[in-house]
Computed example of a mutant assay.
Amino acid sequence: MTAPSRRTAATLLSLDRGVTPDLPLSRYRRALVAVPHPDDEAIGCGGLIACLAAQGCDVQLLLATDGSGGPDAPFNAVEIRVAEYARSAAILGARERARLMLPDSALRRNFVQLKRQTASHVRDFAPDLLIAPAIDDPHPDHAALASCMAALAFDLALPLITYEVWAPIQATHVLDIAPYLESKRQAIQVHQTALRFGNYLRAALGLAEYRSLLLPFRPGVDLYAEAYKIFL
């Protein structure tokens, strides 16, 4: 896999132009982002959300779980994390579509309800682009939500952009997020509850630096990128 030639920062650059085309983000007017937990929107695709919003796209977030977390989470974790999530969405320029508030770490057990509610919101919003966790993400909540979104993308013939959180993906496209890095950084930083249990900020920015190797090299310029697997 070779780095693409230099193109615009508002385009998802194909890593194999013989197989998949570049994807100019300006073509999309309504994007729905499926978010498993409060903080995944910023960690996984904060740069993409900010970029789409900057292009005038109506980006709406669909939060699947209540973010209650594990046994070490504070007693009022749901209230705190949802408030952090709302601030993150505002920083990235997105709007909230809905909060399904299904139990954290239990999307597989509530899969029928998840599938029904997700489909209802997608059909009501009528987006021209879907964004979701990677289908092979090892977190069971992420995988369950990804499965729902992949089925909807197929049924409705919509493009699906999948993002990485808990494991690197076999990317088809890369996005230069340097113009949106500060928005991504600030959005992650508001998730102070999650940051008590892991340095997600350092991990996300480190991954963005590593993924920048897929961009055209520019000596002396700090590059940052997000990588995606896209189904058109």
Rank of each mutant, 00 (worst) to 15 (best):
S68C: 12
F197P: 05
Q192K: 14
Y28L: 02
R116I: 10
G220V: 02
V78E: 14
A144I: 08
I169S: 11
A10P: 03
L13R: 09
R87L: 13
I230D: 00
A31P: 10
I169Q: 13
D155H: 12
P4N: 10
D72W: 05
G69M: 06
P71I: 12
P140L: 10
T8W: 07
E96T: 14
S183V: 01
D128G: 11
A34W: 01
A98F: 01
P168I: 06
D39W: 07
A151P: 03
R30K: 15
Y163N: 04
D104C: 08
A194M: 13
M1R: 13
R87E: 15
L201S: 01
T162D: 00
V33C: 12
A134V: 00
Q55I: 04
P103E: 03
L12E: 02
G47M: 06
A151V: 11
I188D: 03
L152G: 01
A194F: 05
F125E: 04
G93S: 07
L13W: 06
L158N: 09
L63K: 07
D141C: 00
S212R: 03
R95M: 07
A31L: 11
I135A: 08
R30D: 04
S26Y: 01
I80E: 11
R27W: 09
W166G: 14
P140R: 12
A86S: 11
P4E: 10
A83K: 12
A132D: 06
D40V: 05
L145V: 03
S88F: 07
I49V: 09
A34Y: 00
S68D: 12
L181V: 10
L213A: 14
A150I: 05
A53H: 02
V59A: 04
E79R: 12
H139F: 07
R27S: 14
H37G: 04
Q60V: 14
T20E: 11
Y85R: 06
Q170D: 15
L62D: 01
Y200K: 06
R87Q: 15
F154G: 06
D39G: 10
M149D: 09
G47S: 07
R211D: 08
G67Q: 05
T2L: 13
H191C: 07
A178F: 02
E182A: 13
Q189G: 08
F197A: 06
I49E: 01
K229L: 08
L213K: 09
C45H: 02
H191T: 06
S120D: 12
R95Q: 14
V112R: 13
L12H: 01
L12T: 01
P4C: 11
S147V: 04
Q60F: 02
F197I: 01
T118W: 11
E226N: 11
R202P: 01
T11I: 09
R202D: 15
A134G: 14
L201Y: 07
T2E: 14
R108W: 12
T172W: 02
C45N: 05
V19I: 10
I135R: 07
R185Q: 07
